[in-house]
Design a protein around this nucleic acid. Structure first.
Lengths: 195, 195
DNA sequence: GTCTATACTTCGATAGAC
DNA sequence: GTCTATCGAAGTATAGAC
């Protein structure tokens, strides 16, 4: 796991600001809108400084994946041990900007090998942590383990949240509200009302 | 519903070839890699010709959405009346290049208003057609209609197929195979073995 | 640690010849 | 219906001054 090229100090405020702006641009206009010029303009620095801190754009994207991934790992660890972990997982996933950023990173990863590897590493790790933490909880819910194995439940929740968030953002209407309500009803059924 | 600007005749072979290549570029390198120069190079024409046929790039993307959408509507109409419509839907959705193209169009739509409207129109139409065609079939499967309404089943299948295809492409491993097998088992359970 | 200057590439889009 | 020529803008990245 070679580190992304880094010259400026890791604690530099400018470095942090650049990564913040990269996320913001990806959410608003997509990964393709991320350029050293655009970043520089919004951060109030020069384009050369972006390259100074991160080297190539690929290195910059890898740094963005790592920072985000490390944050998400911490958040996940916290909510997985809550008393209603499926509800906690759902509200973690059902997030507009978080989903937007993840979709952009996945699209980017789909076309750039080095980023694909980095993103897959985090995604596999998070999935494994979820399975380990929730296996027992899911076993106690009375689900038919043959028809509804833990993997299906977890992948299904991730898949549904992404799709619902995207369809909302797209302005779709048919079936979106009904599906959200059905998910809430299922959470009620298996973990009781929120609280 | 204003038509996309079109100057060249609708039946032009060049026009068709350009749209084919647009899809190919989007699948291979993402929507951001679509440029008049890149298209021209791969189609063996000049960049100016791309603008001649489609006007702006937005017009070109809209034309791509419409051609694809009209094709998908036809395919969907055909399989929705099969004897195992959920299986047919699943194999329709569980498609690498089709999913890749759709994800690119959704990402593009997320950042360009005119394309968002066009894509949402098709997506809502397809969803409505699916609900209408499968409502009766789903009613006969013995599902608890309160906990598993038709909208959840259809949105869930779309969501799961997209996620599984993407996670496969990403090289993820944890839970992907198990989830696919669980989907197959569910299809077996409700529609019997393939045939 | 930061910035200027620069080299080179690619882009969208159009005017106008053929 | 197709091409050449062209504009101005934006892109990546580096060398080297401060």
């Amino acid at each position: 796991m070679p580190a992304a090229r880094r010259i400026g100090s890791e604690t530099s405020e400018t470095r942090t600001r650049i990564l913040d702006i990269v996320e913001q641009i990806m959410i608003e206009d997509g990964y393709a809108a991320v350029s050293s010029r655009r970043i520089a303009k919004e951060a109030g620095v020069t384009p050369a400084l972006v390259h100074y801190y991160f080297g190539t754009l690929d290195d910059l994207f890898i740094a963005a994946v790592r920072r985000r991934g490390d944050q998400q790992r911490e958040r996940q660890q916290r909510f997985l041990s809550s008393r209603q972990p499926l509800r906690a997982l759902w509200s973690f996933l059902d997030d507009q900007s978080g989903t937007g950023l993840l979709m952009e990173l996945m699209a980017l990863a789909n076309h750039r090998k080095v980023i694909r590897a980095e993103l897959a590493r985090y995604a596999d790790e998070f999935r494994a942590l979820q399975l380990e933490a929730l296996e027992h909880h899911l076993g106690g819910l009375g689900l038919d383990r043959e028809l509804l194995p833990p993997a299906l439940v977890l992948v299904g929740m991730a898949a549904l949240s992404r799709t619902l968030v995207m369809e909302d953002a797209l302005g779709m209407t048919v079936g979106v509200r009904e599906t959200r309500e059905a998910v809430e009803a299922l959470l009620d059924r298996f973990e009781g009302p929120p609280g």
